[in-house]
């Protein structure tokens, strides 16, 4: 599994689509994105296991900035960060995309 992370609007989907030469349809079939929105503290390990069945998993970094005052938002943000760590553990390859530029954090470059 290839795990792609990076800030909001940083070009994560575009990067991996170009790197693997995927059509829009192929990308839809092989990738899952915005997985930070799925993070639910209930069973993150099981969620990470399920997501890791996909070839490409994409998450947006949301852990920067001020810790939210609202307890629901706070626990969601925490869960999203933990989910990202669990996904990176399960991934063969981890790439962070910033300003459209990829940086390899684990494994080998996708191609």
């Amino acid at each position: 599994m290839i795990f792609i992370t990076g800030p909001l609007f940083s070009g994560k989907k575009e990067y991996i689509r170009n790197a693997l030469g995927l059509s829009e349809e192929a990308f839809f079939n092989r990738a899952v994105w915005d997985v930070q929105d799925l993070a639910d503290a209930a069973d993150l390990e099981a969620l990470a296991d399920a997501l890791a069945q996909k070839e490409i998993v994409i998450a947006t970094e949301i852990g920067g900035g001020v810790v939210p005052v609202d307890p629901v938002e706070r626990s969601h943000r925490e869960a999203a960060g933990r989910l990202a760590c669990l996904l990176a553990e399960r991934a063969d390859t981890v790439v962070r995309v910033c300003c459209g530029l990829p940086q390899l954090l684990k494994g080998e470059w996708p191609c």
């Binding site: 800030p7 940083s10 949301i62 300003c99």
Partner: peptide
């Protein structure tokens, strides 16, 4: 761009435009 997207519409538009500028300039 790492603090979520729970912003007002104007702010989100600003972030989207700024991010596009970043990607173009980084290229």
């Amino acid at each position: 761009f790492s603090g979520g997207r729970a912003y007002a519409d104007d702010t989100l538009r600003y972030l989207r435009e700024l991010a596009r500028i970043h990607r173009i300039l980084a290229g």
